[in-house]
Computed example of a mutant assay.
Amino acid sequence: MGANNFKTKLTVRLLALATIASTTLTLIPLAYSQDSETLARVNGNEITAADLAIAEQMYAQQLGQMPEDAKRSVLVDALIELRIISDAARAANAMEQDAYKRQMAFFEAQTLRSVFLEQRVASAVSDAAVRAAYDEQAGKIPVVRERRLRHILLQNESEAKDVIEALKAGRPFAELAQERSADDVSKAKGGDLGFVAEGQTLPEVDAAAGALKQGEFTQEPVASLFGFHVVMLEEERNRPAPPFETISPQIRQALEAAEEQRIISEIRSGAEVEKLIPDVSPPQMDDGHDH
């Protein structure tokens, strides 16, 4: 899409909301309203960085990964055109038309819904609530025992036995892995396979590791389809829960969605509602799977 076409389409979208600009400005977070840098003027009226922030917030998805300077220019151009056309609409008394009033009522209801739910949900889903949900879920995770293993893969049994003798003589396992292992992935890490639970590695390696104590290595080569392994058990532990920092955004999102639905259900239960058309479920979307 050319730049002019993009600006035109964006302007059309912005024009659809132009009439509620004066209403929504008071509902945008305070940080935006404090930003009074003037970016353009139309008929003596300023377009500020606060206006730009609102437009950017509304159209973040459409703007995608556009460079910041281009995004800023496109949005300001669209705001200029929006202001020109909306001023012309006011001069033509468009605000007295029923179509305008119906759209205003819709946009006002939409904005009130958004702000009301956002504020109620934010007050209910605190940092403490997110942490409590994490602690509760972490406590329900089944205990999984896992081992941190190292291995050295050799092409034949004789080579594997040579490595075992070198280990018995005191050679460091990691050093021998880097020198001798045929496993190109793990040899650079001294044969380190990381933490693996039962069933997550080769059955032969799994069985051999299960017979070891921490710090021990296999005294005989372990044969598999890939060759002969010398296996060392470095550490055993119960698998830890995912770190709070990595999953707290998903937990917060789930709590917020649940709280929003609770609030809506609570308010709806006290409202008098008459739906005068039949309830019809939407068709199930095809997800590409043969259920």
Rank of each mutant, 00 (worst) to 15 (best):
G2S: 08
N4Q: 14
T8D: 15
L15P: 04
L15K: 00
I20H: 08
I20V: 05
T26I: 14
L27F: 03
L27G: 06
Y32N: 13
D35K: 09
T38P: 08
T38G: 12
A40G: 00
R41D: 13
E46H: 06
A50F: 03
A50I: 07
A53V: 15
A55S: 06
M58A: 06
Q61Y: 09
K71T: 06
R72Y: 00
V74M: 10
I80W: 09
I84D: 07
R90Q: 13
Q97Y: 06
A99L: 12
F106K: 14
A109T: 00
A109C: 11
S114P: 13
Q119D: 09
R120P: 08
A124I: 15
D127L: 07
A128W: 08
V130M: 07
V130G: 02
R131D: 05
Y134G: 00
I141E: 10
R148Y: 02
N156I: 12
E157L: 00
A160Y: 02
E165F: 03
F173E: 09
F173W: 01
L176I: 03
Q178P: 13
E179D: 08
K187F: 00
D192S: 04
V196C: 11
Q200A: 12
T201L: 11
A208Y: 04
G210I: 00
G210K: 10
V222F: 06
S224L: 05
H229C: 09
P243N: 07
F244H: 07
Q250V: 01
Q250H: 01
E256Y: 01
A258R: 01
S265Q: 14
S265I: 00
E266F: 07
S269P: 10
S269Y: 01
S269L: 01
L276Q: 01
I277W: 06
Q284R: 11
D290Y: 05
D290K: 13
